[in-house]
Design a protein around this nucleic acid. Sequence first.
DNA 1: ATGAAAGCGCTAACAG
DNA 2: CTGTTAGCGCTTTCAT
Lengths: 339, 339
Amino acid sequence: MNLKSLAQHLGISASTVSRVMAGRGDEFRIAKETQKHILDEAAAMGVRPDELARSLRLQSTRTLGLVIPDISNPFFAALARAVERRARALGYTVLLADSQESDEVEAECIRTLMDRRIDGLILAPVGGDSAHLQPLIASKLPLTQVDRVFTALKTAAVVADNFTGAREAVKRLVKLGHKRIACLQGREDSSVIVERVRGYRAGLSEAGLRFEGKFLVGGEHSQAIAREHTLRLLEMKPRPTAVLALSNQLALGALEAVRERGLIIPEDLSLIAFDEQPWATLLSPPLTTLAQPVEDMGTVSVDRLCELIKRGGKPSRKALTTLPVRLIERASIGTKKKD
Amino acid sequence: MNLKSLAQHLGISASTVSRVMAGRGDEFRIAKETQKHILDEAAAMGVRPDELARSLRLQSTRTLGLVIPDISNPFFAALARAVERRARALGYTVLLADSQESDEVEAECIRTLMDRRIDGLILAPVGGDSAHLQPLIASKLPLTQVDRVFTALKTAAVVADNFTGAREAVKRLVKLGHKRIACLQGREDSSVIVERVRGYRAGLSEAGLRFEGKFLVGGEHSQAIAREHTLRLLEMKPRPTAVLALSNQLALGALEAVRERGLIIPEDLSLIAFDEQPWATLLSPPLTTLAQPVEDMGTVSVDRLCELIKRGGKPSRKALTTLPVRLIERASIGTKKKD
DNA sequence: ATGAAAGCGCTAACAG
DNA sequence: CTGTTAGCGCTTTCAT
């Protein structure tokens, strides 16, 4: 059932039906009676305009693409939820794609989405290399980067204040007397990690502590790898007395290692982790976290993108939005006891 | 840039270009040379067929809809990931919608997806009432239900063996000497919960224990509500010595309550929870879980749906697929000590 | 105030 | 082997 057959059924033209269904009946001064007639019959027959045909005709799909590296990472799940909700509120549908932490899959996802003629794209890039994003940039598709971003690409971008978050965490640890503070990182080429490591080093340096390369470990967003690196940290002599884990997945790996070695938090090791999670408070002891403003990041990304779409893809002045990170202090950090 | 302009540019017809771009050049015995020419130029100019126009013409979008109640629930996130991955492998794109545990939003999601002319839908219904799904059923859109299902609706369906899982968990607890085993449920009208509660009661009854209504608490998929109900359980005299939590979110609520009351697991209370999670092993003590085959559920849902699409929506014989649940025993359950 | 006709970009039937 | 033509369902001039 489509508009045309409904029109025939009612003995009027498809144009009139189309105008009424688009809510523009008054604008075209179509008889109230006719309007009611059409609307009633459409509802009764369950006729709705074919979005596909509309999109083709209007050259607009009212669909946004969202590409994230891993939907099973709760941070990105929360981000997706926020994006979806805001987009829905603004009348957009979201096409979600999971790039599986792979540049190749990411490029493929973006191609697929572009083939579907999305109106705009929100991209949380895998990181590292941006070469495969060239066609996307060249296409002039309205684009907002979120979380991990390539600042070299001149697009709107929404990020958490990763630098300040990490720096404040380190400063807090220093205040508790820690001098050997290690940092467990993910992919070193992701902007998020770069910023957090920068914050980590700034925190050390502002406290007059020397940065030690051997205390900066990791290099992948994986719990298993994080566990291994933490095990190695714990074997060092003297070993670090505190660890800053740069994501929730990495924190889980660190916790595994600590447990395996039979060490106690915070007596043997203080731990702070990025990403607040429902289970953080239920660990023994509860975990100190750096809560990212993930809801806001999703909402603002959509808003930025929609502005961009309205402006026809012309970039705005204020390209980068930075949202604050909050330190939630719990019992996983304590005064350094032994040395 | 589109096929037509590419055709003009090359001085050949759009049909030929279309056929070559669809990879059917050989089928139409188009000169190898022409083919190469077209493909090269298309690649050089970045021309790709407009999926929108193709879909309209072919009356097929190669898009599947996926509606889940809550993407921020890691179980559904994992499901979405599996669905996305399998669909991609089969050449489909997935439109994901989050119904936010609301029947109204769910109905709205389904309408939006149908307007976009998806080829099929995978639905994890909110539960309870299926009245709002009538239009969907009537539309004959290929449909697979997953996780929560309405068995009254004659559609393909993929579920975990919730009944057996819950029953085995109870039997294990009974074997450890427990006699007062409570059950913390989610929405009682969801099929998943109904089955798990049925398994819980079967487990009790097979052990010769009486089912006690006051030990079956809860009614919402929320950590906060679960906490409150558990607090109430812990106030009972005599109080239960073991709890079966019917989801990961409920388990977190239960853990909150236990901690607040200063009780020790498993000495004061044994706990088993549905859903295996990365943090389960890191709790103190590690949590005994019932691992759902979430990867398989996603994969099989897509496969079932694609079969259905191929068969033109005709339902198959074997409508319901049940996949096994696995009990992962850890230290959160123990012999009943005091009474 | 409403209708007829063209066209969004593509593919398939038919023609040659 | 390749081209011409019609039409998927819609919206929008342009005409009346």
